[in-house]
Design a binder for these strands. Sequence first.
DNA 1: GACAAACATGCACAAACGTGCAAACCCTGC
DNA 2: GCAGGGTTTGCACGTTTGTGCATGTTTGTC
Lengths: 258, 258
Amino acid sequence: MANLPILPEERHRLIRQRLEAQGRVLAVDLARDLNISEDTIRRDLRELAALGHCQRVYGGALRLSPASGDLQTRQRQNPEGKALVARRAVGLVQPGQVLFLDAGSTNRAIAEALPDHADLTVITNAPDIALALAGRPGFTVIQVGGVLNPSVGGTLGARAVREVADYAADLCFVGVCAVSAEAGLRCFSLEDAEFKRAVIAASRAVAVAVTAEKVGTAASFHVADLATIDHLIVGGEVPDAALAPLLDAGLAILQAAA
Amino acid sequence: MANLPILPEERHRLIRQRLEAQGRVLAVDLARDLNISEDTIRRDLRELAALGHCQRVYGGALRLSPASGDLQTRQRQNPEGKALVARRAVGLVQPGQVLFLDAGSTNRAIAEALPDHADLTVITNAPDIALALAGRPGFTVIQVGGVLNPSVGGTLGARAVREVADYAADLCFVGVCAVSAEAGLRCFSLEDAEFKRAVIAASRAVAVAVTAEKVGTAASFHVADLATIDHLIVGGEVPDAALAPLLDAGLAILQAAA
DNA sequence: GACAAACATGCACAAACGTGCAAACCCTGC
DNA sequence: GCAGGGTTTGCACGTTTGTGCATGTTTGTC
């Protein structure tokens, strides 16, 4: 060992680095590797924990869970059904592509299921999706600006529509509130529908991912006809009576079942 | 030893060079190698740190590039101090105003401290701030679009700057990484500095809220001079030595102490 | 319940630190 | 040349900080 003196601050950085990489550190190991007493290491860990950089535990320290409180709640609200659809949906994505992810909890699940290190560019109007992807390796995240609609959870309105027109995506995932053979894709607000149409217009291919309960239902505002869709991913147990009309309409359907 | 005299500026360049190459320097080593007293080295390191070229630590100095840390970790640093500053900062806000909130953990705290039912319009480039305010009564939230910078936690770049120019705010809260009388307002990235300047240009009044540890320090990139600021809110225990130069500069300072 | 490992705490010592001060140095104008 | 003002440097002083050791306590495990 070189045994060169290590500055306290330098040591803190090293510990944090090791925490980040391995998720945990042991006081004994650090003391041995850094050639310093365990007492000092313990003091370091206590200090780092006080600053909120790790969780102090008996024998060493742990990395804190990566998700912050607000996001954690949302994640828990996501049932397995959405994760199921999401896993199926990401199969459509190729490395290097530019994706459009509309706001919505199902699309949020898709964002989380996207693979790292795939050189993806994700354009989204949903701040929570942007945040979930920010900093993950292999992602460029573009946020669509505009007035944030609280119930939709994304930016909408004229400004957002205009911005979307500036981009061109290989594939978009449009969130819808209802889908049926007769009424097509539908959602609950006019502004939302306008925005989704802009997204579809700016994308080479269109994918819609929905959970079973939305199939065969309708909502107030028309987004697009079924003919517009290239991929429909449905998850969970869909009754044949609801699915048949969609198949009759000539739609290719990816079914994700447990 | 040659013992030839070394000019201070020459010495500074050498120290920065060594910092760049090795990531750290020890005061003792420099004193020995340059054949000069440790006192002088310490003075040099202090100066370099004040200009934002390194981080001064006990025993020497460290390169600061990898140490800026991501948003989530900063969020956890000194939350009480930030809440304190935030409570003081929201006193500047009048009902019905249009505000600009720059990205950053202190500004996030300000967002959370803003009063409900005050008919406020908040423009922000930070998705987490937008999310925190979305749905709260009496708020209109406008998200600035652009490429999301993971370490800053907000959109930056040409697109974001252009969008900001479309708006006009009564008051902006600019987040800075460092503030001092000599170096003014400073931050860690060029793009960030550009964006903040755009925000300042689009606002009738400028407020800067910082926690105590940022006062009297500096960082690599210049944002604006102190003369640009209308309100400076500092929180926590600020040593008089750090505060005095700011007061001498004629700045009105709101101090938030426990 | 026994035992060892991990821990917190107090203490002592050395290293690193900030500050005031005086000497040495530089530049400038007479 | 030299007098004056500003800057830089090293030294002395007291203070702070980091570290290891000794002590007694807590925690996990068998």
